[in-house]
Amino acid sequence: TFEVERIVRKKIVHGNTSYLVKWKNYSSKDNTWETEDDIRTKYGDLVDDFEK
Rank of each mutant, 00 (worst) to 15 (best):
F2A: 14
V13A: 08
K24S: 05
T41I: 13
W33V: 00
R9E: 12
N16K: 15
T35R: 15
T1V: 14
D49A: 14
V13Y: 11
T17M: 05
K22A: 06
T35F: 09
L46M: 13
T32G: 02
T32H: 02
T35K: 12
V4T: 01
D30V: 09
T32Q: 02
E51K: 05
W33F: 02
Y19W: 02
T35C: 09
K42R: 11
W33N: 00
T35N: 11
K11N: 04
N16D: 08
N31M: 15
D30M: 14
I7A: 00
E3R: 04
I12N: 06
L20S: 01
F2K: 15
E34H: 10
T41G: 12
K29C: 12
N25L: 06
V13R: 10
I7W: 03
N25S: 08
V21R: 02
N25I: 06
E36Y: 09
I12D: 05
D45K: 13
T41P: 11
K52N: 09
T17E: 02
D49S: 10
Y43V: 04
E34S: 04
F2E: 11
S28V: 09
R40T: 05
K42P: 03
N31C: 15
G15P: 00
S27N: 08
K11H: 06
Y26E: 07
D48S: 09
E36F: 06
E3C: 08
R40F: 04
K24C: 08
D45Q: 12
N16I: 15
Y43C: 04
V21Q: 00
S18N: 06
Y43Q: 03
E5W: 03
L20C: 11
G44K: 13
G15W: 02
D48Q: 08
S27V: 07
I12W: 05
V4Q: 03
K22F: 05
S28P: 09
T32L: 01
K42H: 10
S28N: 13
K24E: 03
F50E: 02
N31R: 05
V13H: 10
R9W: 09
T32W: 00
K11Y: 06
Y19M: 04
D30I: 08
V4Y: 03
I12S: 08
V47Q: 03
Y19K: 00
F50K: 05
V21W: 01
N16H: 13
E34D: 01
T17Y: 04
F2R: 15
Y19G: 00
E51H: 06
I7C: 08
T1S: 11
K11V: 07
N31A: 10
V8R: 01
K24L: 08
I7E: 03
E36Q: 06
V13K: 08
T17I: 14
D38T: 11
Y26S: 14
V21S: 01
T35G: 06
V21Y: 01
D38K: 12
V21M: 02
E5N: 02
R9C: 15
R6Y: 15
D38P: 03
K10L: 05
I7H: 00
D49N: 12
F50L: 01
Y43S: 04
E36N: 03
D37T: 10
R6V: 12
V13F: 10
D49E: 15
K24I: 05
T41R: 13
E36G: 07
K22R: 05
W23Y: 09
H14K: 13
D30K: 13
R9H: 08
N16A: 12
E3Q: 13
N31T: 09
E5H: 04
R40H: 03
N31P: 07
R40Y: 05
H14F: 11
V8A: 01
T41L: 14
V8H: 02
G44T: 09
H14Y: 09
D38R: 11
L20F: 09
I39W: 01
I12L: 07
V8C: 11
K52Q: 11
K11L: 07
D49V: 10
T41S: 13
F50N: 03
I39E: 00
E34M: 15
D30S: 14
R40E: 03
V21K: 00
D45T: 11
F2I: 12
L46T: 06
T32E: 00
D48N: 14
K10Y: 05
N25E: 09
I7T: 03
V4I: 14
Y43R: 05
T41W: 11
G15M: 03
H14R: 11
E5T: 01
K11T: 07
Y19E: 00
V21I: 13
S28K: 07
W23E: 00
D37I: 10
H14V: 05
N31L: 13
E51A: 04
L20Q: 05
G15S: 04
W33G: 00
V47E: 02
T32M: 02
K42W: 09
K29N: 10
N16R: 13
K42G: 07
T17L: 09
F2G: 14
E34A: 06
G15R: 03
D49F: 09
E5L: 07
T41N: 11
W33T: 01
H14A: 13
R6A: 13
I39R: 00
K29D: 12
V21E: 01
D30Y: 15
E3N: 05
R40L: 09
T35A: 13
D48E: 11
D48V: 07
K52M: 12
T1Y: 12
T32Y: 02
R9S: 13
V8E: 07
D45S: 12
I7G: 00
S18F: 15
T32A: 03
S18W: 15
D37H: 13
D38E: 14
E3K: 05
W33Q: 01
K52H: 10
N16G: 07
I12C: 12
D37C: 09
Y26V: 14
V47Y: 06
D30W: 15
N25F: 09
W23V: 00
K10C: 07
I39F: 07
D45N: 13
D48T: 08
G15V: 02
R9V: 06
V4S: 01
T17D: 00
E51G: 03
W23C: 02
K24G: 03
S27R: 06
V47D: 02
D48W: 07
D37V: 11
Y43K: 02
T32K: 03
W33M: 01
K42A: 13
W23A: 01
E34I: 15
E3F: 05
T35E: 11
K29Q: 12
K22Y: 04
E3G: 06
K22W: 03
F2W: 14
K10S: 06
V21N: 00
Y19N: 00
K22S: 05
D37M: 13
V4C: 07
Y19V: 01
E5Y: 04
I7K: 01
S27L: 10
T1M: 13
L20K: 02
Y26G: 12
I39Q: 00
W23K: 02
E3A: 06
N25Y: 09
H14N: 15
D45L: 09
L20V: 01
G15N: 06
E3P: 04
T35P: 12
K10A: 04
W33Y: 04
G44Y: 08
W33K: 00
E5V: 04
E36H: 06
E51V: 04
G15E: 04
Y26F: 14
D49G: 07
V4F: 05
T32S: 11
I39G: 00
T17Q: 03
V8L: 14
K52W: 06
V8Y: 02
K52T: 10
W23F: 04
R6H: 13
V47I: 13
I12P: 01
D30L: 13
S27H: 10
D45I: 10
K11D: 04
D38I: 10
E51Q: 04
